[in-house]
Design a protein around this nucleic acid. Structure first.
Lengths: 343, 343
DNA sequence: TTGAAAGCGCTAACAG
DNA sequence: CTGTTAGCGCTTTCAA
């Protein structure tokens, strides 16, 4: 790296004081400088290939223009759109994001959180789903700005941006009800995730409203494997014979697909399946999956917006933003079988 | 944010000089300090909740312990594993990554590149596929450390980490050849991507070797839509009637699926399809996709390794690392039809 | 082994 | 409108 030009170099060559260069080059202060001087400074800066050092600026202004984004796992397909949504709001405002993955480990989360604090991030966006020993509470006590996305804040007084999961589940159950289903299983995610709870409760409530027999089964993780093994145990040993399954998310639904296929059952002729999230390419599965679309990109945008509000105006903002979801009906749901093949 | 404790606060409370605190708290220099003093300093630091300010440190040491990662689009499923691979190598070494998305725009790429230079990143990983006006050349002239991943460096003397695409295509064609296919189409990606060229050339060479009639068609983008419309035009107006398609990547292959389905053709009975990348859930498509698996995570790890080598030891490293790929045979390929339905 | 002092590059408060 | 000065928090040379 050739030694980069500094503000002092520009000042020398332009024959002005470094302070003047700083003023000429900054939007907010360029009005304080003679237009001629300013343009001369800019010319010299360009000539020298001067690039402001935002580390130095950050030290002086004690703001790094940087946000920490803590997610469980970027390869989980719901997170890339969230991250891009966040970034789409931050980038035009001069902020950059550090995105880190916890892989569901509290210890990792704590470590990464500390390393981002060291890096002087101006705030955090937490998308880690579990509600166990999350560091959000501690962050709050340290006076750190943050927002929750895709999870509830559960006692921690940070704003939260979530999809209307309850509504999505309700629509799923109603859709199945209209197709004649009267025995429906819900494969719920781990109870430590706030989303699991909301969805399971909404499922139970919707079934009760519609006079449908609904049973909840808990998966140990939001994964294909978990979905498959839970569905296996429903089919093999639960005594409950659903004609439809409402899965806690698309990954679990995919696991249900696998289990059903291995049991020689077809979708939707024998059993209908509904997912949750409308992950990319859900329409290309076998069969194309009926699922609830959550506006992940917008979730990201909103969370970034709320965070910057907090940071820049220290204004109190809405404690909770709930975005609408939409049931996408594809081919994995159909009329309830007249004589369920496994009765 | 309550004012954070600084090194000066710790020094005062521990009754030592700030310089001593710095030495006591840094791995490399703690040997220069009396063990007793050091442990007293550490105790005070913990008591005050002291967190080192890495911005200040960066200013002093002129190293931000930060890497810029420039990709086209995080929601393209090949990138999350690459990014996680990069991060898995960086994080344990104290580095963090800024990941930015260009959406294929040169202007955006330039803008983001400059903003990362301002942020004093210690190096770049370029995963932007196109070879047009990439800023890599300019970066090199400015003496900036960088590595290319999943694309060739094409004249720019940065190290590159790529999958063995040619081998993957060769295996695909051989696989189809063994199944009896003698007329194969290749839907290639845009010629501005180095991967497109490598794959297309390998396709032509493999067909020649095996006495197979192979035709190359160019898609304007690596997308489902592009794959579909190119396949449409192959079927509707090209005069060439392939019994198999080797797609430039999985997205194009998915487009081919759509086109075939709309033309009333079944996969693989009428036409076999091979993808490239083995994106997540490729095995859950309809039908499960035969495709070439590229070790994306490892591509990321290797690129980070090469970059840190360059940065930390300024050692010259391998100019090119090529990782092996693997053909994953699923259900989208089958025997060539005896009497192709559209002959 | 520790203290003193300088300075990384920038911005901001204060003069003039 | 511009120059002066100080200092953000840290590391690091030089002395002691």
């Amino acid at each position: 790296m050739s030694p980069r030009a500094t503000i002092a170099d520009v000042a020398r060559l332009a024959g002005v004081h470094p302070g003047t260069v700083s003023r000429a080059l900054n939007r907010k202060t360029e009005g304080q400088v003679n237009a001629e001087t300013a343009s001369r400074v800019r010319a010299v800066a360009k000539q020298l290939g001067y690039v402001p050092n935002s580390i130095a600026r950050g030290l002086r202004t004690s703001s790094s223009m940087t946000i920490g984004v803590i997610i469980p796992d970027l390869t989980n397909p719901i997170f890339p759109p969230i991250v891009r949504g966040i970034d789409s709001h931050l980038a035009p405002r001069g902020y950059s994001a550090f995105v880190v993955n916890t892989d569901g480990s509290d210890a990792t989360e704590r470590l990464l959180f500390e390393s981002l604090v060291q890096r002087q991030v101006d705030g955090f966006i937490f998308a880690t789903g579990h509600s166990g020993h999350s560091i959000a509470g501690e962050a709050y006590e340290r006076g750190i700005r943050a927002v929750m996305v895709n999870r509830d804040s559960r006692g921690v007084p940070y704003p939260a941006v979530v999809g209307d999961d309850a509504q999505g589940i309700r629509e799923s159950v109603e859709h199945l009800g209209r197709l004649g289903h009267r025995r429906i299983a819900h494969i719920a995610g781990p109870p430590t995730f706030s989303t699991s709870q909301v969805r399971a409760e909404a499922f139970v409530a919707a079934c009760a409203d519609l006079g449908i027999r609904g049973e909840v089964f808990r998966a140990p993780a939001y994964s294909v494997e978990a979905g498959q093994s839970v569905m296996d145990s429903v089919l093999d040993g639960s005594g409950f014979r659903p004609t439809a399954v409402v899965a806690g998310n698309d990954l679990l639904a995919l696991g249900v697909y696998h289990s059903l296929r291995l049991h020689g059952l077809s979708i939707p002729e024998d059993v209908s399946v509904v997912g949750f999230n409308d992950m990319p390419f859900a329409g290309d599965f076998q069969p194309p999956m009926t699922t609830v679309r959550t506006p992940h990109f917008d979730l990201g945008v909103e969370s970034a917006r709320l965070l910057l509000n907090q940071i820049e105006s220290s204004a109190l903002t809405a404690l909770r933003v709930m975005l609408p979801v939409e049931l996408i009906v594809r081919a994995s749901t159909g009329p309830a079988p007249e004589n369920p093949s496994f009765d």
